Simulated scan of single mutants.
Amino acid sequence: MEDERIPYSRAPMLDLTKIRAISLDLDDTLWPIWPTIARAEQVLLDWLKLRAPATAGLFGSPEALREIRNRMHTLRPDLHADLSALRRESIRLALQQANEDGTLAEEAFEVFFAERQRVDLFDDVLPALDLLAARYPLVALTNGNADIARVGLGAYFTASITAREFGVAKPDARIFEAAARAADVAPEQVLHVGDDALLDVLGALGAGMQAVWVNRTDQLWQQEMQPHAEVASLAELGAMFAHEAP
């Protein structure tokens, strides 16, 4: 099959001289998200087997728990920017459907949430963060509910902007603008780095930022607007800045 990759000779060029801050996506940019979620869902299920056995029987697999969480996304569109609330309310719904105590949802969610913070970083992440944080303020920018302090990366970041706390999610330009304000720079002085073509790259471009697409799985770019650069790892990103004075 012929490679239909859009030639990057037509893409904008990354201008390092304009960068005064870097915003970074978290899930699937700094660590793989689905192994983390699967492990957290299994820990939640094990807890339910002890504390809410009827619920564990009715929703007897991590996949079933994920399905009811997806159903809650449809039932409560007002919570689309708050993944913690969506997960908590999906647990509550599962408990209620099994005729068990819905107030257990708070404790059950904390069990899930604690495990969700146990992430396995990609090997290239810490060296890249060491290099980048020495040169620019870094802002975490995520639609997810990872806590950079609990994950163990808080020391690298000047600020963390989450969709849950801010109230709108990527690709809305307002959350990117909030990241720029957190770094005390203009949006056009920010480089955003992320793995999602729509949420990260197009969102950042729409806010007037430069954007780097982290393409760890060799996907084809299929959007008309293009990133300023594409990297297969954060090691490649770090190499772009290796000769820049800190």
Score class of each variant (00 low, 15 high):
residue 132 L to N: 03
residue 147 D to T: 09
residue 162 T to E: 07
residue 137 P to F: 09
residue 140 A to Q: 10
residue 137 P to L: 08
residue 153 L to F: 06
residue 129 L to N: 08
residue 136 Y to F: 15
residue 164 R to L: 02
residue 130 D to M: 07
residue 161 I to S: 08
residue 145 N to M: 06
residue 159 A to C: 10
residue 129 L to D: 05
residue 153 L to H: 06
residue 158 T to S: 15
residue 154 G to I: 04
residue 131 L to T: 06
residue 165 E to K: 15
residue 139 V to C: 14
residue 140 A to R: 02
residue 141 L to C: 11
residue 149 A to S: 09
residue 152 G to C: 08
residue 161 I to L: 14
residue 133 A to K: 06
residue 146 A to W: 07
residue 135 R to V: 00
residue 160 S to P: 04
residue 161 I to F: 12
residue 130 D to V: 08
residue 145 N to L: 01
residue 143 N to S: 15
residue 143 N to D: 15
residue 150 R to L: 08
residue 160 S to R: 08
residue 133 A to I: 03
residue 154 G to V: 07
residue 142 T to C: 14
residue 134 A to S: 15
residue 139 V to S: 13
residue 147 D to W: 00
residue 147 D to N: 15
residue 155 A to G: 15
residue 146 A to S: 14
residue 146 A to F: 08
residue 155 A to V: 03
residue 164 R to T: 11
residue 163 A to M: 13
residue 132 L to G: 03
residue 142 T to H: 09
residue 135 R to H: 05
residue 165 E to W: 03
residue 146 A to M: 10
residue 161 I to R: 04
residue 156 Y to N: 12
residue 164 R to M: 13
residue 151 V to G: 06
residue 158 T to G: 05
residue 135 R to P: 00
residue 138 L to H: 12
residue 163 A to P: 07
residue 129 L to C: 10
residue 150 R to G: 02
residue 132 L to Y: 02
residue 156 Y to F: 15
residue 163 A to N: 13
residue 150 R to N: 02
residue 145 N to F: 01
residue 137 P to R: 12
residue 145 N to Q: 04
residue 162 T to A: 13
residue 140 A to V: 08
residue 164 R to G: 15
residue 144 G to I: 07
residue 151 V to A: 08
residue 153 L to K: 05
residue 155 A to W: 03
residue 164 R to D: 13
residue 162 T to Y: 03
residue 129 L to M: 14
residue 143 N to K: 14
residue 133 A to E: 06
residue 131 L to Y: 00
residue 138 L to C: 12
residue 143 N to V: 14
residue 165 E to D: 15
residue 151 V to Q: 04
residue 132 L to F: 05
residue 138 L to A: 13
residue 157 F to Q: 10
residue 163 A to I: 06
residue 137 P to G: 12
residue 149 A to T: 09
residue 149 A to P: 00
residue 151 V to M: 14
residue 164 R to P: 00
residue 145 N to A: 13
residue 145 N to E: 04
residue 136 Y to L: 03
residue 132 L to D: 01
residue 133 A to W: 00
residue 155 A to C: 08
residue 150 R to W: 00
residue 164 R to Y: 01
residue 141 L to M: 13
residue 136 Y to C: 02
residue 148 I to R: 09
residue 165 E to Q: 15
residue 150 R to F: 00
residue 158 T to V: 07
residue 142 T to A: 12
residue 161 I to H: 05
residue 129 L to G: 05
residue 148 I to C: 08
residue 145 N to R: 03
residue 145 N to T: 10
residue 159 A to D: 15
residue 142 T to E: 12
residue 162 T to M: 13
residue 164 R to W: 00
residue 145 N to G: 03
residue 150 R to H: 02
residue 165 E to Y: 04
residue 132 L to I: 05
residue 163 A to T: 11
residue 149 A to N: 11
residue 129 L to T: 06
residue 148 I to A: 08
residue 134 A to Q: 11
residue 163 A to W: 01
residue 152 G to F: 07
residue 142 T to I: 13
residue 142 T to D: 11
residue 158 T to F: 02
residue 133 A to F: 01
residue 157 F to K: 09
residue 138 L to N: 09
residue 164 R to N: 10
residue 159 A to Q: 14
residue 157 F to H: 06
residue 133 A to G: 10
residue 143 N to A: 14
residue 149 A to C: 04
